[in-house]
Design a protein around this nucleic acid. Sequence first.
DNA 1: ACTTCAACTTGGCGCAGCGTCATCATGCTC
DNA 2: GAGCATGATGACGCTGCGCCAAGTTGAAGT
Lengths: 311, 311
Amino acid sequence: MTLRQVEVIRAVMVTGTIGGAAKLLNVSAPGISRLVKYTERSLGIRFFQRQNGRYFPTPEAENIFEQINGVYKKVDDLSELISKIGRGGLSELRIGSVPSISQVMVPRAIERVRRRYPDLGIDINILKIEEAIDYLLLGRGECVAMSYRLEHSGLDFMPLASGELYCIVPPGHELAGRKQVSAAEITRYPLIGIDPNDPYGRIMAEIFARNRLDYNITIRARFGTTVCALVKAGLGIAIIDQFTVAHGGYPGIELLKITEPTRFDTYIAVKRGAPLSLHVEYFIEALRTEMRAVEPSRSNGKAVPARGRKK
Amino acid sequence: MTLRQVEVIRAVMVTGTIGGAAKLLNVSAPGISRLVKYTERSLGIRFFQRQNGRYFPTPEAENIFEQINGVYKKVDDLSELISKIGRGGLSELRIGSVPSISQVMVPRAIERVRRRYPDLGIDINILKIEEAIDYLLLGRGECVAMSYRLEHSGLDFMPLASGELYCIVPPGHELAGRKQVSAAEITRYPLIGIDPNDPYGRIMAEIFARNRLDYNITIRARFGTTVCALVKAGLGIAIIDQFTVAHGGYPGIELLKITEPTRFDTYIAVKRGAPLSLHVEYFIEALRTEMRAVEPSRSNGKAVPARGRKK
DNA sequence: ACTTCAACTTGGCGCAGCGTCATCATGCTC
DNA sequence: GAGCATGATGACGCTGCGCCAAGTTGAAGT
């Protein structure tokens, strides 16, 4: 007894004719005719009386009809539940992100996720570095997009994308309109920066350190967006990762390429050993796609397989 | 969503492994593996987490599991009902027969029916000719095995089998041990017969009429079995159709072939236009088979199709 | 550290269920 | 009696799903 048989029998009972059932099920009549006959033969039960080319149920079939409808209803319930879950219902995607990535890239990735799972509940958290570990370990979320990798035996890191750093200046600034600037030039202006104790701040600082340049942070902020706001307000210039300002993510400032090579690596952190939900996998893939799309240069060929996270 | 998929998902959930499910469903593991994967892919839902070659349900699947069990239960109910009906439960075979056929042939046919439909309720009626019409027209039964065909616009007749007539004598009778006797010889003894007004009786009488023989009925009975009993008691000899006494149906008498050709036709009568139940069709077929098996001579090749009653 | 084992996965193959269209038989309608 | 609608049947092709054999991978045993 297959579901197909139940379906077909029911359709014939409902419509009363083979052709009607065929139309109802969007198939051609011969298939229905054959399947009904085969089913009757294999079960040893006659469901229908043929009377002048018309089908009507036998007394036995009346009994069966109720049961069939019961089965059908249950299957309907099941299908509905499945489709609800298929659209993301009944479950929640809980993810975190450091501020730089959450500014532009995460919303774009989330938009993709929403399209794929319209009913999915989504919980996004902006986390500072130190919060991310607990966030994952305590199961408050499934993954965190981070701007560097830290060693922790309870976490796994997967590379996400690599970007560059830019120098941002307010419009009308002396440097505005320049194609690119060197690190040395940057140090000649009042700088707005992130606390170098913060790993994010260290990334910014590293470029000067590498070139043994002295620099002077006039204002320290914690988030890249704050930095942008301060720059926009004309309080100085700054260095920032490209993801924070991608897609015109922060209007009213100008981006300047930095002569020296820079690199800004991002990662997805997950709790080690915890299986990933389908949704979060989709999110990670979407985020990776979005971020690689703005990567400065990359052969961009191979897509990292979604589940190859071990080793 | 096919029932197969539900079945497989459930089996995997229950057993926890692909192999276990395969064993449970009596198929090989690759099929299960593939179907599960295909189903997950096509529904966009992950039912199982793969962990160290072990399957366990995702949180979503837990929800679905209940529903699947519900479907399963309903399908089980349905299967049970179907198998009950398949064994003949919930319905009744109601048939009638004239005495001559009911004596030996009907029970043998019914035995076949019982084997095929162990749970089928069976109602057998022994009917005199005149009762048969009402029996059918009022829907008291679906068919009647009769020993001749009558014209009635409300009934249809289908040929059943043709037999011969025999002369029966008590053991020790003068004719006992003879291979065959002629009609003329029979008339020399006291005869036990059926009322010639009764169509059944007329059949017996016809053999003498055809040969223009005078004969003398000393005792008149109504049923063939009564005739047999009277013969057995030594009260005379008689002519009787072979079906009544087939398979040693009436021990204690001797059968003598009659020299002249004889013929005893039987029919199945059904209400015209009324559809036949599967059971009664099976019964008719069984009865036909039984009766043709004792027919004196027939190429015995072709089986009349069960439903070819029209025209 | 190497082997072994027990799972699942993958590839290749074959059958049969069920889809299609074309054609035919039947009973109803005008 | 011609035309129409409905099913039945035949021929044929695709694909789901069965099988076996061989390849992975993590866990356990020595």
